[in-house]
């Protein structure tokens, strides 16, 4: 009798523990989201989105930061996509040596685990100084290429694995060369994984700050599309400018406005990734 009572109390205690942990965490998370939107949304205005900061005119604007973020995304994806997809194709279609595959996969995992501050430092050493690109969007984007490479490799590889071998055999039986088979049959079937990888990479780029501070810099000038490729043209992305506004200028209104924008972008990116992954799941049903 005593034993069963003890058991009941313990059961009750553990259940309460689980539910209160979930409650506390949920409150934290929802609280953070609501607080950011509450503090940030009122300060988002057309003026903020379409002007640049100017002491002379007394305006605060994040247009340069929005553009720089877009440039960084574009340049990074332009370079990392062929590299990452190529690596995944090699791993899944060409590599016969299991040891080589293991080494590459270990390298990709290592890259994924390195903290962004180290990327910032190494990016500065390699791209800013060694390649003399100076502090520039180009140097920042190249740093981001290394950071996002593991993501692209992983998602592409996952979706390559779901392409049925029958497709490959069919193409080869019709006389296609290996490259022709990959280009016409394998890659088109893996497009969902590649898209997922792109979306996740965009999320990483949008949220990155530590790696960009010393590589892409903190400038706030409006750059044209082609100027973004020129060495020495520095520019801060939204996340970096959030840090600058919050910590160095003490302008928490603008900081929260940027935070709200980043939060909404993150939500959209997550939604997009989920959508692409769902399609990916459907794709593998063809087996």
């Amino acid at each position: 009798m005593k034993n069963s009572e003890k058991r009941k109390i313990k059961e009750h205690f553990l259940k309460t523990l689980v539910f209160s942990a979930a409650g506390i965490t949920g409150t934290f998370f929802i609280g953070i989201v609501v607080y950011i939107l509450f503090r940030g949304l009122p300060h988002i205005s057309l003026g903020l989105l379409t002007s640049k900061p100017s002491l002379l005119n007394g305006t605060v604007g994040i247009l340069p930061n929005i553009l720089n973020t877009l440039y960084a995304i574009f340049i990074t994806l332009l370079i990392v996509l062929p590299l990452g997809v190529g690596a995944a194709v090699y791993l899944n279609e060409y590599a016969k040596n299991k040891r080589a595959v293991r080494i590459i996969e270990f390298a990709a995992e290592t890259l994924a685990g390195i903290p962004s501050i180290i990327y910032g430092l190494v990016g500065m050493l390699i791209f800013v100084q060694f390649c003399s690109l100076e502090t520039s969007i180009m140097a920042g984007s190249l740093t981001l290429v290394i950071m996002t490479l593991p993501t692209i490799i992983r998602t592409t590889q996952e979706s390559l694995k779901t392409v049925p071998d029958g497709y490959r055999e069919g193409a080869l039986a019709l006389g296609a060369g290996k490259w022709h088979m990959i280009r016409t049959t394998v890659l088109p079937s893996a497009i969902d994984g590649i898209v997922t990888g792109c979306i996740l990479s965009i999320g990483r780029i949008v949220g990155e700050s530590a790696a960009l501070m010393f590589t892409a810099g903190m400038a706030n000038e409006v750059l044209g599309f082609f100027e973004a490729f020129v060495p020495g043209n520095a520019g801060s992305t939204l996340a970096v400018s959030l840090y600058v506004y919050a910590k160095e200028r003490g302008d928490s209104d603008t900081a929260f406005a940027i935070a709200a924008i980043l939060l909404i972008l993150t939500a959209l990116i997550n939604f997009g990734a989920k959508l692409a992954a769902k399609k990916l799941g459907k794709g593998s049903g063809r087996k």
Partner: peptide, 30 residues
């Protein structure tokens, strides 16, 4: 066609090992 195959195989192999190259470069520079 054979040449194209060889070129593509080489390109993919290079891409494959680029992650390893990055890890080595980062370690060496640090």
């Amino acid at each position: 066609a054979d040449m194209l195959e060889t070129v593509m195989r080489t390109l993919f192999t290079v891409c494959g090992f680029i992650a390893v190259g990055f890890v080595v470069i980062i370690t060496v520079f640090l």
